[in-house]
C-alpha cells in the first residue's frame, strides 16, 4: 500500500480505538478522581457491557438496529446498577482503604469473569451492527495527467465505525456538561476536592460514591456496547481495555478529565498508526514505555496536579 492511503487508514483505525478508549478511561478516571479507588475490575464492567449487549440483541431479535438501541439503553444502566451495588456491598465496608480496595476489585474481577464464563460460556459471540456500509475512500495523486483521484485497495471505513467516533464524542460532551454545568457535577467535584468538608455541607458522600462508581462502570459498558458490533463479546475481552485505560489515565494524570481525553487520543492514534505500519506488539511496548517515562519524569501525569 502506498504511504498516503496507508497513513490515512491507520489514522482512521486509530480514531476508532481512541473513541472507545476515551469512554473506558473516562470511567476509570472519574472513579479514581472522586473516590480515590483504583478499580481493577473496570475491564470486567466493559466485558459485562458487551455480553449484555449480545444478550439483549438476541432476546429482542428482529432488525439489528432494534436490539442495538435497546442494548445501548439497557446495558450501561444495568452494569452501572451492578457496580453501585458492588460499591455498597464491598467497597463501602472496607472504608475505601486504598490497599484493600485494590485487592477487593481484583476479587470482583475474578468473580465477574468466572461467572460470565459459567453462564455465557467461553465462545466469542457476534452482535450484528445496526447499519454497516463500506465507504471506499479516494486518494489523490499527481500523475502524468496532473491531479487525479483514485480509489486505492483497502482504503475504506464503514459507516458504523464513523458512528462509533461520533457517538463517543457526543457522550464526551454530555459528560463534560454533566460535570461542569449541573448540580450533580458540582456535588461530584465538591466530593472530589474534599469529601469531609462536602459532607459537612450536607453532601451525601456515601451515595455520591455509589453513583460515581456506577457511572464509571456504565461508561465502560457504553464503550463496550459501541465496540461489540466491530469485535465480539467474549469473557476475556476486559483485559486489553483495562491495560490501555490504565495507561491512558496514568499518562493523562489520575483524576484529570481533560488529561484523560488528550492521553486517550494520543494512545489510540499512536496505537492505530504504529500497529498498522509496524506491529501491534510494538505499539503496546511503546505505550508502556511512555507510561514508565511519565512516571519517572512527571509522576502526576500530563495535566495532573501535584499532590499538595
Amino acid at each position: 500500500m502506498e504511504f498516503g492511503p496507508h497513513l490515512m487508514l491507520a489514522a482512521l483505525e486509530g480514531a476508532v480505538i481512541s473513541a472507545i478508549l476515551v469512554l473506558t478511561a473516562m470511567g476509570l478516571s472519574i472513579v479514581f478522581g472522586v473516590m480515590r479507588v483504583v478499580n481493577v475490575a473496570h475491564g470486567e464492567f466493559f466485558m459485562l457491557g458487551a455480553v449484555l449487549t449480545w444478550f439483549v440483541a438476541t432476546t429482542i431479535g428482529g432488525h439489528p438496529a432494534l436490539g442495538f438501541v435497546a442494548a445501548l439503553l439497557i446495558a450501561p444502566v444495568l452494569v452501572g446498577c451492578l457496580a453501585a451495588f458492588a460499591d455498597r456491598l464491598i467497597l463501602k465496608r472496607i472504608n475505601y482503604d486504598p490497599d484493600r480496595t485494590i485487592v477487593a476489585t481484583i476479587g470482583m474481577l475474578y468473580i465477574i469473569q468466572q461467572t460470565t464464563l459459567m453462564t455465557f460460556g467461553p465462545e466469542a459471540r457476534p452482535v450484528p451492527p445496526p447499519f454497516n456500509t463500506r465507504l471506499s475512500l479516494p486518494w489523490f495523486e499527481w500523475g502524468e495527467e496532473g491531479f487525479a483521484l483514485f480509489w486505492p485497495w483497502g482504503l475504506s471505513i464503514t459507516t458504523y465505525k464513523l458512528f462509533v467516533i461520533a457517538a463517543a464524542a457526543t457522550v464526551l460532551v454530555g459528560l463534560w456538561v454533566l460535570l461542569t454545568k449541573t448540580k450533580i457535577g458540582l456535588i461530584m467535584r465538591a466530593t472530589q476536592q474534599d469529601s469531609e468538608t462536602a459532607q459537612a455541607f450536607g453532601v451525601p458522600v456515601g451515595r455520591v460514591y455509589s453513583w460515581v462508581f456506577g457511572l464509571g462502570a456504565g461508561l465502560a459498558a457504553l464503550g463496550a456496547v459501541l465496540v461489540v458490533p466491530i469485535q465480539q463479546a467474549h469473557y476475556l475481552m476486559g483485559g486489553d481495555p483495562l491495560l490501555l485505560a490504565f495507561i491512558v489515565v496514568i499518562i493523562g494524570g489520575l483524576g484529570s478529565l481533560p488529561g484523560t481525553v488528550i492521553a486517550a487520543l494520543l494512545i489510540g492514534m499512536s496505537d492505530g498508526i504504529i500497529s498498522v505500519f509496524f506491529s501491534p506488539t510494538l505499539a503496546k511496548i511503546i505505550a508502556t514505555l511512555l507510561v514508565a517515562m511519565v512516571l519517572v519524569f512527571r509522576p502526576q501525569g500530563l495535566l495532573g496536579k501535584k499532590p499538595s
Binding site: 496507508h6 487508514l9 483505525e13 498498522v276
Partner: peptide, 14 residues
C-alpha cells in the same frame, strides 16, 4: 497473534 481481536491493521501489508 491468535489472541488478536482486531485485524484491519494487518491487511495493509498485503
Amino acid at each position: 497473534p491468535p489472541t488478536e481481536t482486531s485485524f484491519t491493521r494487518y491487511f495493509p501489508s498485503i
